[in-house]
Design a protein around this nucleic acid. Structure first.
Lengths: 216, 216
DNA sequence: TGTAATAGTGTTAAAATGACACTAATATAA
DNA sequence: TTATATTAGTGTCATTTTAACACTATTACA
């Protein structure tokens, strides 16, 4: 059986790459032919969807192995006016040391943008980012997913800040520490973070890096 | 631009139609060319994914308007040995009056099967059903999705039984009633269900039929 | 009229949550 | 060297939520 080409939508993957940079949730955008959008593109023949998403993220942004999760598939017929496109959307979480801005992004083909206050994006990429943000915030409440945004070693204050930024509300320091420590998903390293002009903090690390556990 | 056909995966939607029949969670299967599987098939040119899923469910099973939710997109390269197929999976919830078996299904092209103890299904449809079951059970705990499995009027005992069947564990009657009534998602109709040989029960109805609300 | 069957109803102990304020340790500047 | 600024770190208690638990009410039918 060989259907005519017109009856087959083009299948793409698009990735929402999130990171906490500075004190904000940011998204890494890639310049596409018609404007700024999410890293992504056509799925290869015989290429797994996850593999395609990871490949496109790597090719277009240079980002190495990161946490990746399928989000939703967007297939409204006219989401691309030029031709039928169906996008399997993913989100990625990129660990960045707090105070750092992460690895420099290559050239002017990519740029970081605050998740609040994105520039106009191509197609329905703005909507995809919005769905991804909601999902990320929801998962904070019942999983250890925030650890995927942390560097290898981090302080409890930094972890709390990540939660606060994504949830958009302040959290109680003592309650936060109590909860996260009883979860036993992180462990103290014994090392201290030495900042400037203040008491040094214990450094922690994830007990199961790369894994996201459901809690409650 | 016209890419060669081989580079475009065939896109399908597949639907897991759930219902509570008798005392079990069941799935409505459709006979496909190579064996029993989920209702589904190719997405039409310029057809929305949700529309395609609903159309295929209606065409292959005769089921009318039901609750439908996108589940996950399955795209492992060799999930179909014959050709590259990517399936956007949905699940559907079909309300059936308890004690009834629902509308008769047409001919021998469809059959109900218990979600435990499905026959061997084509491709990865068994896996799709497994993912859908997990999602359904999870959503019971934080949404009013179970109402989509209930007929227009139902008793609290029937609603509790639906929860117990899907969760696979007994629930406390008084705690269940307390919780569901304080949610204010259902209301008493004033009518009574008259069974045989026992006290009649109040009939309730959903306050917002068709809508699923998040709770907690 | 008695029996079988399901409907319907509150209380209490335990656990989880959420609010709340002070001391400790360091770097730096005076 | 000492004072100050800055963040780290720590516990209690009231409130709310959850979970366990058993009896009476109403009907159909024998």
């Amino acid at each position: 059986m060989n259907l005519p080409n017109a009856s087959l939508p083009t299948l793409t993957t698009d990735v929402v790459p999130f990171a906490i940079r500075g004190e904000r949730l940011e998204v890494l955008l890639a310049r596409q032919t018609t404007g700024w959008g999410l890293p992504g593109g056509p799925v290869g023949v015989d290429e797994d969807l996850d593999v395609a998403a990871r490949r496109q993220l790597a090719e277009q942004t240079g980002l190495p192995e990161v946490y990746l999760e399928q989000l939703y598939t967007f297939g409204r017929p006219n989401r691309d006016p030029a031709r039928r496109m169906v996008a399997v959307a993913y989100f990625a979480l990129i660990p960045i040391a707090s105070g750092s801005v992460g690895a420099p992004v290559a050239g002017d083909a990519v740029r970081w943008a605050a998740a609040d206050g994105l520039p106009p994006l191509i197609l329905d990429h703005g909507e995809i980012v919005a769905v991804a943000r909601r999902r990320l915030a929801a998962k904070l409440l019942y999983s250890t997913i925030a650890l995927q945004l942390m560097p290898e070693r981090f302080t409890l204050s930094e972890l709390q800040a990540v939660h606060e930024i994504i949830l958009g509300e302040p959290l109680d320091k003592r309650n936060f520490r109590k909860r996260v420590l009883t979860l036993e998903c992180i462990e103290a390293t014994g090392e201290l973070a030495r900042h400037s002009g203040r008491r040094p903090a214990q450094l922690y690390r994830a007990q199961h890096p790369g894994q996201v556990e459901l809690i409650r």
